[in-house]
């Protein structure tokens, strides 16, 4: 009997969790349960990131996505989860349509995913762990330390790093911050009158 490949074992574990809870998000109609399943699905995904050697991305997924975004989402769910909005049933027609389109899409994607031979297996013994956090940081500042030796001009493309996207994202975040504060600002309403959207 072959030795258990622990990487595969944990991959299987997290993959089942992620897929199972993703499907649970689709299946359930209770919005609070949906948020809960989504949390677990995204948490399991971060496990997959750790397995793939992307420590920093995994930790960020937990910190920003699960710890920040989803808490916000649940906050929103709790603000609006009242009576009829907790479970809104989807009409059967929509469900059939969604399942049909989704199934077709899934078949297409799965076919694409398993088409390339080189993708099916990896090296039996993966290389030693790499620390990626500071490399990522350097890349964001514009220095690609992993491509310094690249001779192939095609592969060496992107040497400039990600300084520009990084700046764009920073400005974007600022805009979003202001924008969402503007959207959620206190508004004025006439007592007993129509909503004043000024």
């Amino acid at each position: 009997m072959d030795a258990i490949n622990w990487h595969s074992f944990f991959f299987l574990f997290f993959a089942l969790l992620a897929c199972g809870f993703s499907l649970a998000v689709v299946m359930t109609s209770n919005i609070v349960h949906m948020a809960f399943y989504l949390t677990l699905a995204l948490g399991a995904t971060s496990g997959l990131f750790f397995l793939a050697g992307a420590d920093f991305v995994g930790a960020m997924q937990l910190l920003i996505y699960v710890g920040g975004t989803l808490v916000l989402l649940i906050f929103g769910v709790m603000l609006t989860a009242k009576g009829p909005f907790i479970s809104m049933k989807t009409s059967a027609g929509d469900l059939v349509l969604g399942a049909g389109v989704g199934g077709a899409l899934l078949v297409l994607l799965l076919a694409a995913a398993t088409q390339v031979d080189a993708w099916r297996v990896s090296e039996p013994s993966p290389p030693v762990a790499q620390v990626t956090a500071s490399r990522l940081g350097m890349a964001l500042l514009g220095a690609r330390v992993d491509k310094l030796d690249e001779k192939d001009p095609v592969q060496a493309r992107g040497m400039s790093g990600y300084l520009l996207p990084f700046e764009i994202v920073s400005v974007h975040l600022l805009v979003v911050l202001i924008g969402s504060a503007y959207l959620a600002r206190p508004k004025k309403r006439m007592v007993g009158g129509p909503v004043d959207t000024a």
Binding site: F36, F56, G58, A59, L62, L63, G67
Partner: peptide, 26 residues
């Protein structure tokens, strides 16, 4: 021994809030 242990611990401890929120809601 994780390379991103600091963030990992902060992130995981931050998840504790889910238990509290769900308990409060449920």
């Amino acid at each position: 021994r994780l390379n991103t242990a600091v963030f990992f611990i902060l992130a995981v401890l931050g998840l504790e809030v889910f238990g509290v929120i769900l308990a409060g809601y449920a």
